[in-house]
Design a protein around this nucleic acid. Structure first.
Lengths: 337, 337
DNA sequence: ATGAAAGCGCTAACAT
DNA sequence: ATGTTAGCGCTTTCAT
């Protein structure tokens, strides 16, 4: 592979001129520029970007910490990140962390070892927390989707409380008074917020909160299926089931249908996220849509601003959501609506 | 951030000794090793990996070219890659290419600019083809899942022909004689192979091939839905529908059920891939399971071997598949099986 | 067992 | 407008 020196020799100029021709062409005369360009073509020269990054101290790479890549919502967010990163001349390094703090710490080391400029964390956990706490300034990271509050980095999230409240109100309006909830992992703040939004709507409607119709889940199809089965074993079953994500809802619907229940005639089911499969579920799933790609754009944009020192105080960005009513929710049995 | 020089100064040794302590500890005496180690801890020194990579000429990064990250099958393959890469001290750079050759070429430049050591391509296209054709030796790449035959790189794939043939035979055994097929993108060799496997099984059963029950699709939910609708508009509809992937099958089932058909009583539906949703579809989908994670392992392992010069001739690896019979396929209407 | 010194390929002052 | 030169932080002969 040709180096900058060979190009310089062939063009009969110094390496500095070659470098300039590449970095700031306007600073070299058209004549020499042409000579250099032709020498570059002739040799098939490609700058060694490892040397460039090393020398310049900027890698133009961002590490993305994602609990699991096999999640359609995250996939959309990451797609958005990639678009925004490419526009800004950055590339993305994906780290599948399974939510493991040790793995996250490993990836964060990439920043400390100058392999990446910053990190985007998709989970509610500060991966820098194990290290030296930042003395004052902003950390080179942003936290998206599932966030933890901190003055050290920007966050981009949904108003999960209000979104869950809207969905619960939708169910309430349909006449449901006994609404079950399949939660996400208890460790996730997102789960807590959605739970509180649900409780809030219930309280507004003067419906007592019944802990016995709260079910544990972990955002997977299987956990939704299992939770619904547990629900069916109970007496006095709910007439509506709010699931904290779509995968859970789709798993739950399967269990409900297997038990001979009709959706939404016998029981309504609602999800959260609006993944592609939800529109093709049977019946199509009522859910909350989030601007996934926008989450990605915003995260990258903020991180780049942080890296360039354009941001001093860490902003808290709230993205909009939308209630999507499809056929999995309907009037409560016995209601004539 | 501390450099190797500071550590050397504090430990009272040369930079070479610090480097050795890190690279080949056995070559430095226990006493100095202890001093160096303590100096490293004291300064919180982390080697600048950009400098290491630059100096050593090895990046220990692999670019993965994936048409779309929002595909559950690919997600599993990538998970497998990540495991195998981590074991070998490599990290993965994901490139979402939308199957765009220009974007692919951009990512391939990362190899040429020393930002990555090799590439794993998940699509049937040689991303190096635009560049100088390799003069003889192996290219630093492996081609997985959807492959193009070439002597320049290893490939890892399924026996798509036989897998499709098995599925068609399964349908034939259930008494179906009119079996529709929803294809993948025509540009994909994978589509062609599956089509030929289907034709092969039909021919073996002396059933004439009817082009009018072949439908175009592109592996998305929506395309499956649309294709099934087109099928329903035709006279003499098939009693079974083989879809070249699970997303398409799930989309198709939705259209079929909306039209009032019972699956599998009125029509059988089969897919390909065995994504998680297939087990939770209504009815659960009969499909072909592929060892997705294993594809990833094998790909990384082969690529690392190529990079280390351990492989001279490009192997063609065929991964095993398995027919998973669930409830979306059943006896042809009118059969008593 | 350890140190001195020469670069890897490039950028960025500083000179001319 | 162009060239000279001094490194970036590290690895790696080659001496000692």
């Amino acid at each position: 592979m040709a180096t900058i020196r060979e190009v310089a020799d062939i063009a009969g100029v110094s390496v500095a001129t070659v470098s300039r021709t590449l970095q700031q062409p306007e600073r070299v005369s058209p004549k020499t520029r042409a000579r250099v360009t032709s020498a570059i073509e002739q040799t098939g020269y490609k700058p060694n970007l490892m040397a460039v990054k090393f020398r310049s101290g900027k890698t133009h790479s961002l590490v993305v910490l994602v609990p699991t890549i096999a999640n359609l919502f995250f996939a959309r967010v990451i797609n958005g990140m990639q678009e925004a990163a490419a526009e800004r001349g950055y590339s993305l390094l994906l780290g599948n962390t399974q939510g493991n703090p040790d793995l996250e710490a490993d990836y964060v080391k990439m920043v400390q070892t100058s392999q990446a400029d910053g990190v985007i964390q998709l989970r509610a956990h500060n991966p820098f927390s194990a290290m030296q706490s930042s003395s004052g300034g902003l950390l080179p990271m942003v936290n998206v989707c599932e966030v933890v509050d901190s003055a050290s980095f920007p966050t981009v999230t949904l108003d999960n409380h209000n979104a869950a409240k809207s969905m619960t109100e939708h169910l309430l309006e349909l006449g449901h008074t006994r609404i079950g909830l399949i939660k996400g992992p208890n460790s996730s703040p997102l789960t807590q917020e959605r739970l509180r939004g649900y409780q809030h709507a219930l309280a507004n409607a003067d419906i007592p909160f019944d802990e016995s119709i709260l079910f544990d889940g972990d955002f997977t199809l299987r956990s939704g299926f299992d939770a619904a089965r547990r629900m069916l074993e109970q007496p006095n079953r709910p007439t509506a089931l709010f699931c904290e994500n779509d995968e859970t809802a789709i798993g739950a619907m399967q269990a409900l249908k297997q038990a001979g229940l009709k959706i939404p005639e016998d029981i309504s089911v609602a999800g959260f996220d609006d993944i592609a499969f939800s529109g093709y579920a049977d019946p199509p799933l009522t859910t909350i849509a989030q601007p996934a790609e926008e989450f990605g754009h915003t995260a990258v944009s903020l991180l780049v601003d942080v890296l360039n020192g354009k941001i001093k105080k860490a902003p808290r960005v709230i993205m909009p959501h939308e209630l999507i009513v499809r056929n999995s929710t309907g009037p409560a049995p016995g209601t004539n609506a």
